Simulated scan of single mutants.
Amino acid sequence: MPTASLQSVVDYAIAHESPWPRSMYYPDGSYVGNVEWNERGPWTEIVGPVAERGGPAGVIMRGGETVAEWGNTARTDMTFSIAKSYLSVLTGLAVADGLIPDIDRPVAETVDGPVFAGAHNGAITWRHLLHQNSEWQGELFGKSDQVDHFRQIGPGADNSRKGQRRTLGAPGSVYEYNDVRVNVLGYALLRRFRRPLPEVLRERIMDPIGASRDWRWEGYENADVDIDGRMIRSVPGGGHWGGGLFIGARDHALFGQLVAAKGSWQGRELIPASWLAQSLAPSPTLPNYGFLWWLNRGPTANPKLPAGSFSALGAGSNVIWIAPELDVVAVVRWIDKAAVDGFCERLAAALA
C-alpha cells in the first residue's frame, strides 16, 4: 500500500485523465494524432495498427522496489514517442557491438542506398539523428520530412504552419521534432543489426530485466525492408501514423529502472553506462534534449524538480520520469499533458 502522500499523487494522476478518446478516433472519424498535430494534406493516412486505449495507469518505483501502482499496468497500450527513447538505447547497443564505429561519422558510411545518398543527406551523422537536428530530407515509407516542418510540441504549441515547406539548414544546425527523421534512425538501425529491432530489444533488454512477453513493436504496413533476402519490417519511433510500441506500464517501469541503474541489472551491464551518460548530455541545438530523452535543463527547466531528472515522453500523455537524486522511476499513462508537471512536482515533494 502506498503512503498517504504517495496516494495523493496517485489520486492526482487518476483525476487528470487524458482528454483523448479511448477509441483513438473522434466521432467524425479523425485519428487523434491528426487532430493533436493539426495534420493535413497528403501524409495523413494511418498505415500502422491502432488500438483502443485503457484508463489511467502507472507505477512508482523507489530504490528498485514498487511503492505505488494504479490502473491496469499490464495492459499493452500504444505508447507513442516513448519509443524514441527505446531507439536511443538500441543505438547504444549498436555502438557497443561495433556496428556503429563512430556516432560522429556519416551514417552513409555504414548504411548504403538512397536514404542517405547525396551531399545533404550524406553528411548526416548518427548524433544528428539522435539529437533530432539532422535536417534529413526525403520520403520514407510514404511519409515526407515536410509533414513535420514547423512542428511545435509542448505547452503553447502553435502548429498553424505545420507541414509548410521551409528552407533546410545544414545537418546538425536546426532542432526539429520530426517523426519521419526518427523513423529514418529506426531504418538505419535495422540496416546495421540486420535483425528485427523488437527481436534485439527483447533478447538484449526486456527479457533480461524480467519484462512480460506481451509487449510488441508494430511497423507500418509498407515498411518492409529487404535484409539479406528476408523482408523485415522497420519500426517507427512513435504512433504518429499508427503502429509503434504497444506495452504495459509495468514493463516501462522496469525499462526505466534499468536506465536509472546506469544500464546494469543484477550485476550485468545491459546498456553501457558511458552510452547513457552521453545520452543525457544536452544537445547543442536544444538544451533540454539529449539522445531522444527530455532533460530538466536549460531555460525551460522546472525548478521544482531535480536538475538531473529526465523523461521519455509520448503523446496522450505517456511518461517515464526518472529522478536519480530521489532514486525514483515513475510511469504515468493517459494523463492530461497539462498535468504532467503537476504530477512530477507532487511526486518529488512527497519523496523529498
Rank of each mutant, 00 (worst) to 15 (best):
T76K: 09
D77E: 14
D77N: 15
T79C: 07
T79G: 06
F80M: 12
S81I: 08
I82M: 08
I82F: 03
K84M: 03
Y86P: 00
L87E: 06
L87A: 11
L87M: 14
S88I: 00
V89K: 01
V89Y: 04
L90S: 12
G92F: 07
L93V: 06
A94Y: 11
G98C: 14
I100A: 13
D102P: 08
I103C: 09
D104M: 07
D104N: 14
D104L: 04
P106C: 04
V107M: 02
V107F: 03
E109N: 11
D112P: 09
D112C: 02
G113T: 06
G113N: 08
V115I: 14
F116I: 07
G118C: 13
G118R: 10
A119W: 02
A119M: 12
A119G: 01
N121K: 11
T125N: 05
W126I: 12
H128S: 06
L130W: 01
Q137K: 06
Q137T: 05
Q137C: 00
G138N: 09
L140P: 00
F141W: 05
F141G: 00
F141C: 00
G142F: 01
V147K: 11
V147F: 03
H149I: 05
G154C: 07
G154R: 00
G154K: 06
G154Q: 04
G156P: 06
D158F: 12
D158P: 10
D158L: 09
N159E: 10
S160L: 04
L168W: 08
G169T: 10
A170D: 06
G172C: 12
G172I: 09
V174N: 08
V174L: 11
V174S: 03
E176M: 10
E176G: 12
Y177H: 15
N178R: 12
D179T: 15
V180M: 01
N183F: 01
N183H: 07
V184S: 12
L185T: 01
G186W: 01
L189A: 13
L189Q: 10
R191T: 05
F193T: 11
L197E: 02
L197N: 04
V200A: 09
I205Y: 01
M206A: 15
G210C: 09
R213K: 15
W215Q: 04
W217F: 08
E218H: 02
